[in-house]
Design a protein around this nucleic acid. Structure first.
Lengths: 192, 192
DNA sequence: TCCTTTTGCTAGCAGCGCTAGATGCGAGAG
DNA sequence: CTCTCGCATCTAGCGCTGCTAGCAAAAGGA
């Protein structure tokens, strides 16, 4: 009895600490940007020494990947809310706007999902469930508009359009004040 | 006389060395990626010491910006060639394919232009001429298709679509084998 | 109580961007 | 031709990064 319960307690504590690390990384990134997320700073934040991080994660990239998966669940939830709240004619516009809003309001999270960390499986069945869920929301928004186009290809292409809009705008390549017009145009081109 | 010619010789040599730096940075980035472009490595490559770099450029970002401007001229040239070689019905497809090919074949150059360096003015009249030229090629390709849409907004949106396609694909977010289908779909949605 | 294993820490490596201060070379004056 | 001055360049080093080897301490089992 003792052996088992002691072991399980340890595993529980370990899991809690792992959550602590991911949460700290995420909050630090969201409040001060990924540049501020150094292993020393993170260790200080969780009140352990640096090497502890490496007993949970292979390297810093793995921590970022964990944050990405978490953030992806948030994105999926927001897309789902937007999709189900909108009337049938406005689904694509609502989901597109929700996607852009997420990227705008939580840039650190968006970046770690879609531009930074590479060591996540993406367009395969092994991709994290949250990620497939987010993609699924986009796909369902486009399903009524697919006609003779392949739904997955259509979804990926529309998604690329959104991704291009938000990334180019966020690092100063596109004038911010025309964002709404560009978004509307993209949606118009993918509606009907 | 001596004073002037000595000074001008020095200025000429300085300018040559500046070109040397930019070229070395570009070649190093293209052959081994930007991670390999460290100030030490770059100094070694040009056979000067590190501080020399800082007598030409404010910091490493400024060197990257210089490479970006150079690369942008290449991009503009390739887009121009594609646009002028294609028949009127195939302009958009040709230019889109040329854009994607550039991103695919010269990823380091593409990244420094469109994702890395931020200290370049972009969507303003102060933007480098090469950059405006590249954007202009896209704009001219879309002009016949603009109809009642604002041409600049249309161009920026189409550009975003291309940018999203290539960036998401290059870091593993999109299956490579469907690239052609996605590109064709994007072009179809912006034609007519 | 003693031993073993596990856990976390201190200290340090190699590399980064960047810079202060020393050094040597070239140009102009006498 | 020589001396001096100023500028161009280099050496050395700062503070930071991600990451790890090796030791200390705590915890569990006999």
């Amino acid at each position: 009895m003792t052996v088992m319960s002691i072991q399980s307690r340890r595993e529980r504590e370990r899991a809690e600490r792992e959550r602590l690390i991911v949460t700290a990384a995420r909050e630090l990134a969201e409040s001060e940007g990924w540049d501020a997320v150094t292993t020393r700073r993170l260790a200080e934040e969780i009140e352990y020494s640096q090497p502890v991080l490496y007993s949970h994660f292979k390297d810093k990239g793995a921590i970022m990947a964990a944050v990405a998966v978490e953030g992806c669940a948030d994105l999926a939830a927001e897309l789902h809310a937007a999709r189900t709240a909108a009337g049938p004619q406005q689904v694509l516009a609502a989901v597109g706007a929700a996607y852009a809003a997420f990227a705008e309001q939580r840039p650190a999270l968006y970046d770690v999902i879609f531009t930074h960390a590479v060591d996540l499986p993406f367009a395969t069945p092994q991709a994290p469930a949250a990620l497939q869920a987010a993609f699924g929301e986009l796909r369902e928004s486009l399903r009524p508009l697919a006609k003779d186009d392949n739904l997955d290809v259509l979804t990926e292409t529309f998604w690329s359009g959104l991704h291009g809009l938000v990334t180019l705008m966020r690092n100063g390549r596109l004038r911010r004040e025309d964002h709404e017009r560009r978004l509307a145009l993209l949606i118009a081109r993918f509606s009907r």
